[in-house]
Amino acid sequence: MAEKASESSNSISLNTVDGKIFKVSPTIANQMQTIQSLIKAYDSSRVISLPHVNAFHLSKIIEYLEGKSATTVSAVKEFEAQFMKDLSLKQLKGLLIAVGYLKVNELLELMPKTVAKLIENKSVEFLRKFFGIVNDFTPSEEAKIREEIAWAFDGVDED
């Protein structure tokens, strides 16, 4: 009983943008650099608000940080593969934004790698659609850049 009380007094409360409160252990919280610096800035009893993170993304991050503590290297690899596989593209992008904001270093390694796999050797149009990029070049500006780096466009996949 006493142990449980001390554990909950140590835990850190995080409030997501959609108003859900998560209690996480210091071990988990310390793996998010942004929260680490917020804890230092505030008194630890306060609830920390996360304006850019919703409940789904935070729960996924916690799921990852708890799950990857598996013992063997191969078990961690399997877990990571499954974790990435379960995400839809929309979730993947949203989660990556949250991970970038919270600075979860291990996911900042794993997720960009997965995204890079999805976009390698793809056309410019594909990439614009993928990231939701608005082309702010004039046609002549774009043509000029394409000419400068023509070698980079050899052998790109058709859409």
């Binding site: 960009p112 995204v115 890079a116 976009i119 793809k122 410019v124 990029i133 774009e142 394409r146 980079a152």
Partner: peptide
């Protein structure tokens, strides 16, 4: 993300925006 791409693909992104 770009750092995991082949340099060729990374350079090609300079035309995106």
């Amino acid at each position: 993300i770009l750092s995991f791409l082949a340099t060729k693909d990374a350079v090609a992104t300079s035309v995106l925006s």
